[in-house]
Design a protein around this nucleic acid. Structure first.
Length: 825
RNA sequence: GCCCGGGUGGCGGAAUUAGAAGACGCGUGCGACUCAAAAUCGCAUGGGGUUUAACCCCUUGAGGGUGCAAGUCCCUCCCCGGGCACCA
């Protein structure tokens, strides 16, 4: 009989489904394994082979764990809110809801052909009201805890997507999604105080078994800076103003080198002191110019303007220095103002040169003439602090400021609060309404204690929708295109917007922004555990059993977005007692991108997309699976080559043929020993390599083993069965088919994973390498336990070796047991 | 600019604690089977010497170093990929 994957694959997929062998049970006894993929956006383009790489890997591991006796949870679902789904809908003039339904159907169909172990009874969809009810619920808890605030500050606005964006959604000043240049635009926004969790998000990284580079990316993104903050007095002539300029620096040791101060154009202090500024009109003009610039443009230059008429006083030496406004100071980091120390900061150096400002050296550290020196060293020209080294000076100066109550140690983070609202249709509605009456009450202080929660007091007028009224359903609309006005399309649906205040019953209006794509993916891994729970987000018992996720697999592109947001929400849920774990994802592995056959990113635009359906049809799902795991290191980017799938298919053909050699009796003893040895070596290598994500070498070992077995006339049934089990996670259909042909009634995946015998794995005989001066000159078959004496004897008696050492003095002999002997002459 | 990865045959890639460089696969060549082709099977396959053979030399981006021994460790440089980029 010929190997015909088209027939057997469909057959087994149906049987597995019917017999529900992958149904996850919430039994609490067995050891559990929660194996999770980052769930896909069901885009209209469908899946390509690149998407599958991670899914196949988790499937391989899930199958092995299953056979090892673990209770495995390996679910799948859909991250279906957000821009990709919405843009697709707009482009094709279909309602997003319809498009999503259609796309999910297509994705599911595609996935069903690969032979995954998903338990579809736990399927989730972020756009399902029974799901987003809980997304809204979590938001409400954040709101009530005072972690959400309404802001009107200028934020990043994508003119093409017509929505505000979070810092995380930018790439070099461009929209991460569409590549448009982002503008700063004042907009009413909901912002979540993720910065409150910055320190914990940083510290707890040490508990995680994550790839180092991803940990580092998160550290850099959170960007903790420890320094000193202090106040500078501001003078107009001899008169001191009541406003003070706050400076944050990580290099207080260079403070005596300050020759000027720079403020961000958006710094609020400017407005406060504008009547003291002689050239206010000029400053105002400059401010407008800078604000009109795109984020990207601001990064290139160091334009600036001097504020005339006022000076700032350095508290350390009472020196009065000029004040500038420049675009190189960021308004939304630290105090929005910096001290200019051109001798010891490259940016200040550049600026000082441009504006002809004095450059004063205060750190001695072997710098070059005419350049700035950013390293640490010994303080000079620094009054009482001269002679200290940078580290000592930092301590003493912070103390000095603290004693005078004008400053002290301070920590800032690079991570910004999370801009959480989008002016788009396809997202979760906010469970908030705005009530003028309640606003008045709060502002006038005429309310009872406990009448309003922390969030409501923080955002006067905004009232929480009661939890029992959740979900606030996204209304069906005719027109869902973004408006571009800063309002979401929902604002136009008067019937939906107009409502009653749940608190006082007055006329109120619903919040019309929607949540960003990331919201739904922040907690989806919890929903898989308890997908049908209507009473609570998750049952405590189930959470305790299944959490944390034991293995999480997905692309690196989520390192500073989804993976930070999800950790943040998880920690919050922990804080309010909903869950018992501090971190959601214990072990993380990132999957490398598969490039098209032309070496470019797989994309419709390049016409290089490989559809798994075609590969399955032509060569079979098992071949596809084996190839994807064999093609190279899992986390590495790699080019798709159809030839490679053909190679995988040939390997499976070989296995298929091997079954005709199976016999029920035992082999001759020496042969049996040899075959058993390679089998047990293979059990060891495959088991360990799957565990450590070295799928390519696991398969290579399976090939080596098959090549050896193939040489025999006969194969012992038991040996072959063990081999099949090792192959099964990679090529489940063919393994199951042969398993059945061999007479088994139950699925191979219900049989136990083989264990290796330490004694059998060990080589008894080895090839002893004989080197002369480090070069291989002879090889001899010996027992692995060969002694140094014996090895020497063998080396000296070798004819080949004699040739090399003849007439020479042996200076040294190096013996590595079980490996080699090196004669140095 | 700063911080991470990485550079191994024609190609994808193996190589434990430094211990036979090139496992496994692809491709290619030759042969078998065949009327023929495909598929399949067998053999060969880093480069260069060489009288068949035996054997020798060179070879892991470049150069230097440490070691009996270096793809692996150290220094200098080149190239490729990624992250961050006025974060004070």
């Amino acid at each position: 009989m010929k190997y015909s994957p088209q027939k057997i694959e469909r057959k087994w997929q149906k049987i597995w489904e019917r017999k529900k062998i992958y149904k996850t049970k919430d039994v609490q006894k067995k050891s559990k394994f929660y194996c999770l993929d980052m769930f896909p956006y069901p885009s209209g383009a469908g899946l390509h082979v690149g998407h599958l790489r991670g899914y196949i890997a988790t499937d391989v591991i899930s199958r092995m764990k299953m056979m090892q006796g673990f209770n495995v949870l390996h679910p799948m679902g859909w991250d279906a809110f957000g821009l990709p789904a919405e843009n697709y809908a707009i482009q094709h003039k279909i309602h997003p809801e319809v498009a999503v339904r259609r796309n999910i159907k297509n994705f599911k169909k595609q996935l069903s052909k690969i032979g995954f172990t998903y338990d579809w009874e736990r399927e989730i969809n972020t756009t399902d009201p029974t799901y987003y009810k809980w997304t809204q619920w979590i938001f409400l808890q954040l709101f009530k805890a005072g972690l959400v605030y309404e802001s009107f500050e200028p934020i990043n606005w994508c003119p093409s997507c017509k929505t505000g964006l979070a810092n995380e959604d930018l790439e070099r000043g461009r929209c991460e999604r569409c590549g448009s240049r982002v503008e700063k635009r004042p907009l009413r926004q909901w912002v979540i105080k993720i910065t409150k969790y910055a320190d914990r998000l940083l510290k707890d990284l040490k508990y995680l078994n994550w790839p180092e580079h991803i940990v580092k990316m998160q550290k850099d993104w959170i960007g903790k800076s420890e320094g000193v903050e202090f106040e500078m007095k501001v003078f107009k002539g001899k008169r001191e103003l009541k406003e003070k300029i706050k400076i944050f620096t990580t290099r207080i040791d260079t403070v005596f080198g300050m020759t000027y101060v720079v403020l961000a154009p958006e710094n609020k202090i400017l407005e406060k002191i504008k009547d003291k500024i002689e050239n206010w009109k000029e400053i105002e003009k400059y401010k407008k110019e800078v604000e009109a610039k795109l984020v990207e443009e601001r990064e290139k230059e160091k334009t600036g303007i001097k504020i005339k008429g006022i000076l700032a006083e350095n508290p350390f030496n009472k020196e009065k220095v000029p004040i500038f406004v420049s675009e190189y100071v960021l308004a939304d980091y630290a105090t929005g103002s910096v001290m200019g120390v051109p001798a010891h900061d490259k940016r200040d150096f550049e600026f000082a040169k441009k504006f002809n400002l004095p450059i004063r050296k205060v750190i001695e550290g072997g710098q070059k003439e005419g350049e700035c020196y950013e390293g640490e060293g010994i303080l000079v020209n620094s009054g009482e602090f001269s002679g200290l080294n940078s580290t000592q000076a930092k301590e003493k100066m912070a103390q000095w400021l603290k004693e005078r109550k004008i400053g002290g140690k301070k920590v800032y983070y690079k991570i910004r609060d999370w801009v959480f609202a989008r002016q788009r249709y396809w997202g979760e509605p906010f469970p908030l309404v705005f009530c003028e009456n309640c606003k008045k009450k709060i502002l006038e202080g005429k309310y009872k204690k406990g009448e309003f929660n922390k969030g409501e007091l923080l955002n006067p007028g905004w009232i929480c929708v009661p939890e029992k009224e959740l979900p606030v359903k996204l209304p069906k609309v005719k027109y869902y295109e973004p408006t571009g006005t800063g309002e979401s399309p929902l604002a136009k649906i008067e019937k939906w917007v107009k409502t009653k205040c749940p608190k006082c019953g007055f006329v109120a209006r619903r919040e019309t922004n929607t949540m960003p794509q990331w919201a739904g993916s922040c907690w989806y891994y919890l929903r898989y555990i308890d997908p049908k729970n209507k009473r609570e987000l998750i049952s405590k018992k189930k959470e305790k059993y299944w959490m944390p996720v034991d293995l999480y697999v997905g692309g690196v592109e989520h390192a500073t977005r989804h993976l930070i947001y999800a950790r943040f929400w998880h920690k919050f849920l922990y804080d309010i007692g909903v869950i018992s774990t501090k971190e959601p994802f214990l072990r993380l592995r990132s999957v490398g991108v598969i490039l098209g056959p032309d070496g470019r990113k797989m994309s419709k635009r390049y016409g290089n997309v490989v559809n798994p359906d075609d590969v399955c049809k032509k060569l079979g799902a098992d071949s596809l699976r084996v190839y994807e795991m064999f093609m190279g290191p899992f986390d590495q980017e790699i080019t798709w080559q159809e030839r490679g799938v053909v190679g995988a298919r040939r390997f499976l053909e070989k296995i298929w043929k091997l079954k005709s050699k199976i016999v029920n009796c035992k082999l001759q003893i020496d042969k049996r020993k040899e075959i058993l040895k390679i089998l047990h070596q293979t059990i060891k290598k495959v088991t360990e390599d799957i565990e450590t994500f070295k799928f390519n070498t696991a398969i290579s070992q399976l090939m080596v083993c098959a090549n050896r077995i193939e040489k025999e006339e006969k194969i012992e049934k038991e040996i072959f069965e063990n081999y099949l089990k090792l192959l099964a996670p990679f090529a489940p259909h063919i393994a199951e088919e042969i398993w059945q042909i061999l007479g088994h009634k139950k699925s191979i995946f219900l049989s136990p994973w083989p264990k290796w015998n330490k004694k059998l794995v060990k080589e008894e005989m080895i090839t002893l390498i004989i080197q002369v001066n480090g070069k291989v000159r002879d090889k001899i078959e010996v027992e692995a336990s060969v002694s140094e004496e014996k090895a020497k004897e063998l080396a000296f008696s070798s004819e080949k070796i004699k040739k090399w050492i003849e007439g020479k003095e042996i200076k040294k002999v190096v013996f590595v047991p079980g490996k080699l002997i090196n004669l140095v002459v």
